[in-house]
Nucleic acid binder design. Structure first.
Length: 991
RNA sequence: GCGGAUGUGGCGUAAUUGGUAGCCGUGCCAGACUUAGGAUCUGGUGCCGAAAGGCGUGGGGGUUCGAGUCCCUUCAUCCGCACCA
């Protein structure tokens, strides 16, 4: 018996939705095939977004019996440019996982918030005088609207913003804990500084094994006799947050110092401004204390190998030994660090960094002038110059000699800026035969190159490999490198010249920024000594200032604040870096409104660490390393119960845009200038089609902005004569000429007759390239469900892919097809059948359940989209509109396309959100086949197919295949050498 | 230089993990219904070839009955790091 249900949609609509309906209503006249039951994604989506918000459908409960699942997206900075289609890619993936896990019975924490301190808002404030808080608020509003448009299942009741005083209260609190802690190497964890003070008071520092800056040994009596100021000065050498004079990356253009990871290729990551080395008094965090734990922890994480490698590389562990070289002329000695103590007999000179403290002391009078000159030059070189210039070998002889610890030979001491002051001891024992840098130095200055390991050709290049037998090396002769290293360390240790040592490249992180728009550091100064404020006085609110610029005396903007002090004592005027607030935000989401603690015990014990973290790989060594560091510290002080914040990390690939560039020339001020200029693909199309009026308008806007934005303009002055000669045709010649001027020009398109030739390439989507695609536009045109599915359909989540709207129609068509499954032929009425299902329908459904489930577990979202398409195609062929099939299908599809599924789910007669429905259970029984169409191959080449029962034994299959006349044809009278039958797979006949 | 990743139709991609290469979608070709199509539906579409057949997963080699998948080698592109002793 056929039973058809007509279910009518019954609800009230807001004015806004009515107006959307109205628009659809008119479209009926314009497009006659439209009718009331068509897929009106705009009104459907708005309606359910409102429903979810009103019903708090995605609110996570801190008191739940259910297992927890914590899905987090990387903290976004709400930029003024808003979201482009690349941003939501990861959010869509994590949203799908969140919705899936809810269907699977998990209590899911899926929050969102804003990392809202940052440079752009402050730069804007400097330019316009508008308070960054206002800019930030506006940007957040826009972001929120855009996010809401896409239908994410965030629990917005837990939103946090780093700029909220209630939030940075706890960022400041963590700083205070860091200030009040030191790292005990014995227990291998951070401990309260009060414990350390007790040790100093009772036994001095001789028995303290701490991670600290070098400090003199003192007894308890010494300590107790020190003044308060002296004591505090010493404690700063131990605190995990400390003030010290350090070499910093100073960026004059930004007016602030930068952390190492904020500097790329010698220029600032943001803005690309030059960075120089400068000695400044700065707050830093002793992250290096955690180097080994940060390294070891990586092995426990489910992250991509490339990110783990990047962190390992950044931490840069190397094992070796320290070794002291006595000086020939004075009592002093030089300590070096080497990973190749086996090559000790191959040392032919020592090299010190120009900044090395002994340089002045040891340089002989004869060499003084040259050395001083060299030191001055290398000091004044910017980081960028130094990096750009690695090939040039430079150095000076100091005139001094060290004594070889074993041969007692005199070894000349040089200085050279290939030796870094900041790594190891700032001094190396040069073994030119087995280190390419020492080799280049020795060749350049004609120094001896004694070989001590067999292998390679020392006349041509150094032999750096760690294999071979030791020669010319006294007690090491005949040993393999590895054994020799071990023996050399033993010997060095027994004679007391040094000891085995591990070095890390990881530097302590500079924590202060000379900026306004950041968290105030909760520190005040009493007689020049820094103290942290009392916890009860937190938060230290960001004060108002008249201007967001440094003071006339060069102090940070906070120094402008009036009457801003702590009981009459001056506050610290630097603010925290951008990564402070984002290093612990994932904890605040667990308990966002807790006024007494950064996170409550019950909350953090329930939610634990993040099960899935989704974000871009650009945070490989910055955010991800700092957050891990803080997590370990918070574990040490028992605030959190885990060592690692992010168990699984997935990096979404960048969605790229098309970049159209052209070179234009302009004749200004008597000079011809060439500009590299990005144009939108729209302008490109207009130029191509010769629509000069539209093109001219666009061009004025785009080229105008490119030229104004000189940062991105490759500006070259070209003499007019060149143009006259080249007549705009000799592009190669012009390119060559430009390259000779030192400008790297990879492509050059200057057209004649005001026609432009344009180079198309894929690259970052950005305002500067005029290629940003706004997700709002896609939502308006196709709907959020289409956007969500299309972004997933584009390819594997991790891959970078260019945005193109080519395939979006197909995805949209799929949703319309799915919609039609629930409607009758004329698409007028919702029709769902309660008829019994058949085998074919069950097979289609369960195939899809299997695939959809596996794919989400494997983060393979693109393949499940195509599985849904296959499913709908098959159900359409089967003319299936049965409840027993379509309802489970809706649940499968709902994480991807939540709005349409919710709409159809309610049309099916449900009153509760589809979100509450249980994930369908896969039954393999429905996929069982009893026959298989075997491909029959000959020597691996498939020729035809034969149908056999699946329970047929291989021997029988073989017999049947050989009996087949097609087989006889392909055998050409020969006897098969061998026949392979793989049950349910393939038959291969070997002739 | 070191490290990581990726190479498959015109395009985005897929392939039960060693078993029929090209699923799904675009694009293209043809057709149906249409006053119309930027709606919908049907068929075709890796390349060469009239067909039989041959060739095909960046290139070259190997293992195997069988290789996109495993091994060696090489090339190309992208992304990190880069004088770290």
């Amino acid at each position: 018996m056929k039973l058809k249900h007509l279910v009518h949609c019954n609800r009230t609509y807001t004015l806004f939705e009515q107006s959307l309906w109205l628009a659809d209503f008119f479209s009926i006249f314009l497009l006659p095939q439209f009718n009331m039951a068509s897929y009106h994604f705009n009104s459907i989506e708005k309606n359910w977004q409102k429903f979810w918000a009103e019903h708090q459908t995605f609110k996570a409960d801190n008191n739940s019996e259910l297992p927890k699942y914590y899905v987090l997206d990387m903290f976004p900075y709400p930029s003024g440019a808003g979201l482009h289609v690349g941003h939501p890619l990861g959010y869509i993936a994590s949203d799908i996982v969140s919705r899936y896990k809810r269907h699977k019975g998990y209590n899911v924490l899926h929050p969102m918030g804003y990392d809202s301190f940052g440079l752009p808002a402050e730069q804007y404030a400097i330019q316009t005088g508008q308070h960054p808080a206002i800019t930030t608020e506006e940007n957040i509003k826009r972001y929120r609207q855009q996010l809401d448009n896409i239908g994410f299942s965030f629990d917005w009741s837990r939103e946090v913003r780093t700029t909220d005083a209630q939030y940075y209260h706890w960022t400041q609190w963590i700083f205070i804990q860091l200030f009040n802690a030191w790292y005990n190497k014995v227990s291998d964890k951070a401990e309260p500084i009060s414990e350390l003070i007790k040790k100093f008071e009772t036994t001095g520092n001789a028995n303290v094994n701490a991670v600290c800056d070098e400090t003199k040994t003192f007894t308890a009596n010494d300590w107790n006799a020190f003044t308060e100021k002296e004591q505090q000065g010493i404690l700063l050498n131990y605190r995990l947050a400390y003030l010290s004079d350090t070499m910093v990356n100073w960026c004059p253009e930004l007016g602030t110092v930068l952390a190492n990871d904020e500097v790329k290729d010698g220029v600032s990551e943001r803005g690309g401004y030059p960075v120089e080395r400068k000695l400044m008094s700065q707050w830093s965090l002793r992250i290096a204390a955690y180097a080994e734990r940060l390294l070891q922890g990586l092995d426990t994480l489910d992250w991509t190998e490339s990110i783990k490698e990047a962190q390992r590389n950044w931490i840069g562990k190397s094992e070796g030994t320290s070794l002291r070289f006595a000086l020939a002329q004075t009592d002093a000695s030089i300590e070096v660090f080497t990973t190749r103590p086996d090559t000790i007999f191959g040392v032919s000179f020592l090299t010190l960094a120009p900044e090395h403290e002994l340089v002045v002391q040891i340089t002989t009078d004869a060499c003084k002038a040259a050395v001083e000159n060299y030191v001055t030059i290398s000091k004044n070189r910017s980081e960028r110059d130094r990096m750009a210039d690695v090939k040039t070998i430079s150095g000076e002889f100091t005139g001094a000699y060290a004594i070889h610890p074993f041969t007692k030979a005199l070894i000349p001491i040089w200085i050279g800026d290939y030796v870094l002051a900041g790594y190891g001891t700032g001094a190396v024992m040069a073994v030119p035969a087995h280190d390419s840098r020492d080799y280049a130095f020795a060749k350049h200055f004609n120094l001896p190159i004694p070989q001590v390991v067999e292998g390679g050709d020392i006349n041509v290049e150094s032999y750096d490999a760690k294999e071979g037998l030791l020669i010319n090396s006294d007690f090491l002769n005949g040993l393999e490198v590895k054994a020799a290293i071990k023996k050399a360390i033993e010997k060095i240790e027994t004679v007391g010249l040094g000891k085995g040592k591990t070095n890390y490249r990881l530097r302590n992180a500079i924590f202060g920024r000379q900026r306004y728009w950041g968290e105030p550091i909760p520190v005040y100064y009493k007689e020049g000594v820094p103290y942290v404020v009392e916890e009860k006085d937190l938060p230290i609110a960001l004060p108002e200032v008249d201007k967001f610029l440094p003071t006339e005396t060069g102090e940070p903007p906070l120094a402008r604040a009036q009457n801003w002090n702590y009981n009459g004592h001056a506050f610290e005027t630097t603010t925290m870096p951008g990564w402070a607030g984002s290093s612990w935000y994932y904890l605040r989401y667990m308990d966002p409104n807790n006024a007494n603690e950064m996170v409550g015990n019950a909350a953090v014990n329930y939610w634990q660490n993040i099960d899935l973290y989704v974000g871009g790989s650009e945070h490989a060594v910055g955010h991800l390393l700092y957050a891990r560091f803080w997590c370990k510290f918070l574990k040490d002080i028992s605030t959190v119960p885990f060592e690692e914040p992010f168990k699984k990390l997935v990096n979404q690939g960048m969605i790229q845009g098309t970049i159209c560039t052209t070179y234009i020339y302009s004749y200004q001020n008597g000079l011809n200038e060439i500009f590299k200029c990005a144009i939108s693909s729209e302008l490109h199309a207009q130029l191509k089609s010769g629509n000069s009026e539209v093109a001219n308008n666009l061009m004025a806007a785009q080229i105008g902005s490119s030229i104004a934005d000189c940062q991105y303009v490759n500006e070259v002055n070209v003499p007019f004569e060149f143009f006259a000669a080249a007549a705009f045709e000799d592009f190669e010649g012009l390119k060559k000429w430009l390259n000779n001027t030192g400008n790297s020009v990879t492509h050059l398109i200057v057209g004649t007759d005001s026609k432009f030739q344009v180079k198309m390439e894929t690259g970052k989507m950005s305002k500067r390239w005029h290629n940003v695609v706004n997700p709002d536009d896609i939502c308006t045109q196709y709907g959020a469900d289409t956007l969500r599915m299309y972004e997933m359909f584009l390819g594997p989540l991790q891959d970078a892919k260019p945005w193109s709207t080519q395939g979006i129609e197909g995805v949209h068509r799929f949703l319309k097809k799915a919609w039609r499954l629930f409607h009758n032929n004329t698409n007028e009425d919702f029709v769902l059948s309660d008829e019994a299902v058949n085998k074919a329908e069950l097979k289609t459904l369960h195939k899809t359940i299997k695939k959809a489930t596996e794919d989400i577990e494997n983060f393979s979202f693109n393949t499940s989209v195509s599985a849904f398409m296959v499913c709908v195609n098959e159900l359409q062929d089967l003319k299936c509109n049965k409840r027993e099939i379509l309802e489970p299908f809706l649940i499968l599809l709902s994480p991807y396309a939540p709005h349409i599924c919710e709409e159809l789910w309610h049309l099916c007669g449900h009153s509760e959100s589809i979100e509450k429905a249980t994930w369908p259970v896969f039954n393999p029984g429905f996929l069982v086949e009893n026959e298989f169409n075997y491909p029959i191959s000959f020597n691996g080449k498939v020729r035809f197919n034969l149908n056999f029962a699946l329970d047929m034994e291989p021997a029988e299959v073989e017999k049947a295949v050989l009996a087949d006349e097609q087989t006889i044809k392909y055998l050409e009278g020969k006897t098969p050498k061998k026949i392979i039958v793989v049950k349910g797979r393939i038959v291969n006949v070997v002739i």
